[in-house]
C-alpha cells in the first residue's frame, strides 16, 4: 500500500513497514534518491514517491544517502525506532535494530567511504573530521557531499549545480 499524506513541512509516504518523510525546503538536489532508485523516487511522476517500487531495505538504503534532512524515514511500529547520529539537531536518522547491534561491536573508527559520483560530487560517508572555511567539525555516521564541478553556490558542499552546468567528470 502506498499513501501520500501531508505533515508539517512536507509530505509523507508509507508502505506496510516504514514511512518516508519529504521536506522539500531542505532538498539541495543532490539527486541520490532518483539516481539510486528511480522506481521509487521519480521527480517526473505525481506523487513522485511510489513506496511499492522497491523493497523496504532498498528504500531505507537510498533515503540514508540523502545528504540533508529532505528525506528521512521511520518504522511504522514506533517501538522499533531508535535514534542514531544526531550531529544535526533537527535531523535524526533511524536504523534497523540489527544494524545498531552491529555498530556496538564495530571499531570506533571505521574506514571512511569516499564515492566519486558520475558527473557529480564527492560523497563522504562515515566518521571523520572536516575542516572548511576556518571551521573544524567532527562528523559521526554522516554523509556529506562535496562539490566537484566548482559551480556550487554553497561551497564546499554540493548544491546540484553540476547538473545545470552539464559537468562531465
Amino acid at each position: 500500500m502506498s499513501r501520500d499524506q501531508s505533515f508539517s513541512g512536507g509530505r509523507k509516504y508509507s508502505n506496510d513497514e516504514i514511512t518516508v518523510y519529504w521536506k522539500p525546503s531542505a532538498c539541495i538536489h543532490a539527486s541520490y534518491c532518483y539516481r539510486e532508485l528511480l522506481e521509487v523516487f521519480d521527480p517526473g511522476r505525481r506523487p513522485w514517491v511510489d513506496m511499492k517500487g522497491a523493497s523496504t531495505e532498498k528504500i531505507i538504503e537510498t533515503v540514508n544517502m540523502c545528504p540533508t534532512e529532505a528525506l528521512t524515514w521511520k518504522w511504522n511500529e514506533e517501538a522499533k525506532n531508535q535514534p542514531v547520529g544526531s550531529d544535526q539537531s533537527n535531523h535524526i536518522r533511524f536504523r534497523r535494530p540489527e544494524l545498531l547491534a552491529q555498530d556496538a561491536n564495530a571499531p570506533e573508527e571505521n574506514p571512511v567511504t569516499i564515492k566519486i559520483m558520475n558527473d557529480g560530487p564527492i560523497v563522504l560517508k562515515g566518521d571523520f573530521s572536516l575542516a572548511y572555511s576556518g571551521i573544524n567539525k567532527d562528523f559521526r555516521e554522516a554523509i556529506v557531499s562535496i562539490c566537484r564541478c566548482g559551480a556550487s553556490e554553497h561551497q564546499p558542499f554540493c548544491d546540484g549545480q553540476h547538473r545545470k552546468i552539464g559537468f562531465i567528470g
Binding site: 573508527e109 571505521n110 574506514p111 571512511v112 567511504t113 569516499i114 564527492i122 563522504l124 562515515g126 566518521d127 571523520f128 573530521s129 572536516l130 575542516a131 572548511y132 572555511s133 562535496i146 564546499p156
Partner: peptide, 19 residues
C-alpha cells in the same frame, strides 16, 4: 582518524583510513 580538509581555492585533502 580520518581528516578531511577543504583547501581554500584548492583540492579536498583526505588523510587516513579510507575506501
Amino acid at each position: 582518524k580520518t581528516i578531511i580538509e577543504v583547501i581554500d581555492s584548492g583540492p579536498l585533502k583526505i588523510t587516513g583510513n579510507i575506501v
